[in-house]
């Protein structure tokens, strides 16, 4: 598949990456080469291969349902830019 400027702008927006108009052509070109490489992989016949969800051939270990975490809010909130009444605060988002 061929990447367009519009594709890249859309992906950048979804990933909240800021790519200026002057950078866009360069990114389209570089990302495009990666996509072309993946296109080569597509040539391999994988019809008989079960899609892999993880490179390790292991299954998920399960945890017992017990509470092991204590309340460390004050410690964790020292890392936050802004807190109020125990809440993390961020610039207002409106639905």
């Amino acid at each position: 598949m061929k990447l367009t400027r519009q594709n890249v702008a859309q992906i950048a927006h979804l990933a909240r990456l800021e790519i200026g108009p002057e950078e866009l052509d360069g990114v389209v070109e570089k990302l495009g080469r990666i996509v072309e490489f993946v296109d080569q992989l597509q040539l391999a016949d994988t019809s008989a291969v079960t899609p892999m969800a993880h490179p390790m051939d292991m299954s998920q270990r399960l945890r017992a349902d017990t509470v092991t975490e204590a309340d460390r809010r004050d410690l964790y909130q020292q890392n936050s830019a802004a807190v109020e009444d125990g809440l993390y605060t961020v610039p207002r988002v409106i639905e």
């Binding site: 349902d65 017990t66 975490e69 309340d71 460390r72 809010r73 909130q77 125990g86 809440l87 993390y88």
Partner: peptide, 21 residues
Amino acid sequence: RSKIFSGSATAYGAAPNTQAS
């Protein structure tokens, strides 16, 4: 009793962020 991917409690009505690890 605990969350799906962590050992934090799931009790309803706790003070804000006291059950967020």
